[in-house]
């Protein structure tokens, strides 16, 4: 069968998509971790990893290899089934979220007409995995981390949805390819700057990263929900975190930064440039601020982000109505 005709069959599309997603996933796991370590290093007057590969580029691969080689430890007293399942419950949603990401006008696994909704509903499943991990670990620190995680993601879903509602109202579509096409003239970051900031803050909170990393909070809860995890299971959590980071950045690119739109360079390249620019900002924020207290985190969400998002939504609809 020829390559072009392979693309047209259902099975062919599935195989190619899985292969493509795995490539992007692996590439990102290597690059994002490396970026994090390098950027944090340079902010802190260090160099970061330098030994494995040029400028330590293969350090993540070496770390991964080490984690694969480690023994899988199941501590005493844990709920074995849940404990084993939890990392994958966190990991698989992040793979599924790749389905709707429009890497370019043609490179997209499936252009669902409810793409946006699909993306954010799937992202919620990871929270269940985190809670499973904390619950099954039979460790008080883990449990506290898990409970915090639930509270946090319920709270921060709201400003995220409110901020992207603006985009939906403007484009009249949940289809991601159409949202990108609507930005061919002007990126939504220009008229919708405040929702962009709200989205970014809430996304960092959804990712459990500093300054919102209360479920992990290494100085309070040791390592939060993954205190008892080691070896490959820990690595799965770790990779899921960095994959999620890529995904929310990709979504920010799609919604606010014009997706694949851009002059001269091919669309895919533009997409990755913009995505990693957002990844850079997320990393930069992490290495600048301390962690918030859980109640302050909630206050910030309910007393600042949500009202702001609501007001913004109101203004957007009002302006659209007038126009």
């Amino acid at each position: 069968m020829e390559f072009a005709s392979l693309l047209n069959t259902f099975l062919g599309r599935v195989i190619l998509s899985v292969a493509g997603v795995m490539i992007v996933f692996t590439f990102n796991a290597l690059i994002a971790v490396w970026l994090e370590r390098k950027i944090s290093g340079h902010i802190q007057l260090r160099l970061g990893p330098m030994e494995v590969g040029p400028h330590g580029l293969l350090q993540s691969a070496a770390d991964g290899l080490k984690l694969i080689c480690k023994e899988i430890i199941t501590p005493q007293g844990v709920d074995k089934k849940l404990f084993g399942l939890a990392p994958y419950m966190v990991f698989f949603p992040s793979l599924l979220m790749f389905v709707v990401i429009p890497f370019s006008d043609k490179l997209q696994v499936q252009d669902l007409n409810i793409g946006l909704l699909y993306f954010f509903s799937i992202s919620c499943i990871a929270t269940i995995g985190i809670f499973m991990a904390g619950w099954a670990s039979n460790n008080k620190y883990s449990l506290m981390g898990a409970v915090r995680s639930i509270a946090q993601s319920i709270a921060y879903e709201i400003p995220i949805i409110l901020s992207i509602l603006n985009i939906v109202i403007i484009t009249q579509s949940l289809k991601l390819s159409e949202i990108v096409k609507a930005q061919s003239n002007i990126w939504f970051i220009v008229p919708q700057f405040i929702p962009f900031i709200i989205y970014l803050i809430s996304a960092i909170a959804e990712l459990n990263r500093t300054p919102f990393d209360i479920p992990e909070a290494e100085s309070e809860l040791v390592a939060g929900f993954h205190t008892e995890y080691s070896g490959m299971r820990f690595a799965v959590f770790f990779m899921a975190e960095y994959t999620n980071m890529f995904l929310v950045s990709a979504m920010a690119t799609t919604l606010f930064l014009g997706g694949w739109n851009g002059p001269i360079l091919p669309p895919v390249v533009w997409f990755f440039i913009k995505t990693y620019a957002i990844v850079f900002i997320i990393i930069w924020v992490r290495w600048t601020f301390p962690r918030l207290r859980p109640d302050q985190l909630m206050n910030f969400c309910w007393k600042f982000l949500t009202p702001l998002a609501l007001v913004n939504l109101l203004v957007t609809t009002f302006i659209l109505k007038i126009l």
Partner: peptide, 12 residues
């Protein structure tokens, strides 16, 4: 501030 330090020469 952290961005300015990002471009500083590492001391290690």
């Amino acid at each position: 501030k952290s961005l300015t330090y990002f471009f500083k020469k590492p001391v290690t």
